[in-house]
Amino acid sequence: MSSWYFSHLTLIQGMLISIPLALSVQIALRSGVFSFASIGFYGVGAYGTGILTMRGWPVLPAMLLMIVASGVVAYLMSAPLIRLRGLYLGMVTFAFDLILTVVATNGGELTGGALGLLGVPLGMGTGGLLAAALVAIVLVSQLERRSVGRALVGIKASEELVMSVGVDLKSRKRTVFAISAALGALSGSLYVSTFSTVSPTSAGFTLIITTLTMAVIGGTSSWIGAVIGTVIITWLPTMAATIGEYQHLVYGVVLVLVVMYAPEGVLGALRWLWRRLAPKVRMARPSGGAALAATGPPGGPPPDRGAEAEAEPVPADRVKG
């Protein structure tokens, strides 16, 4: 067991580091915020922490500073951003990630140019990584429960509805944006103080692919999905030795296939299985089946009316929100 642990230490560490990043994308997508910005903030966190610790800062304060700063900056940035419609927000945050690569490459001595930062002081043990991943999981999973959780899911389903039940839509979206950024920065900080290096490419386009694959393959409806996705993507390359340099090609194909055939990810598949099995479980309890029968057969008058209605929003959709 311990020899297995030590021979796979890098993978385990990589997995723990990726969890907050996958969560950062998951929480944004779950709340209907089409943002890739947290992947850019991963770079901010990695470079920021690296630069600070190389100048003598202790690791923890440097990390904390970068996480808080990222959250605050993201909150301020979000004011104009959340007004944008879905595709525009996706585009702008995608552009934000790409521009950070440019900044890192051209940052001269501060960012180490195209080579990036080398020899950043190590400051994270596996225990620390585990603790950070757990904290991230606890914080994100709490936001899926109760009133907060219902409001966030509601934002994704229908903005008009959540506004009409009194949810402060803008404030919720901005806070989610900030939390997502802080999680990204956390992940980047952990990375640089574990592996002691960061380069422009490690926070570039391939990271967007990898992270999206992690979040989407597991399913964005819950933190569990992000964790499942991270585990799968971390261990996938070890299972198929031939993947090697074609790793991102495989991720790309997997991402496309998941989006096409299982947009709810592994989690969605599990839920689907559960729904198939659940009636058998419920057979034991008489009340469930009887209740359904009492209201008559489902799907009475216009069965597809709901779907049709969703596709054709009230004019208000365009005017506001």
């Binding site: 089409f34 595709l87 692919i209 999206l212 090609l249 790309g252 194909v253 496309v256 989006v259």
Partner: peptide, 14 residues
Amino acid sequence: ELLTLIAGVGAAGI
């Protein structure tokens, strides 16, 4: 729209 966006990123990886 979101799924199309994500699929595009995946396709770009190839």
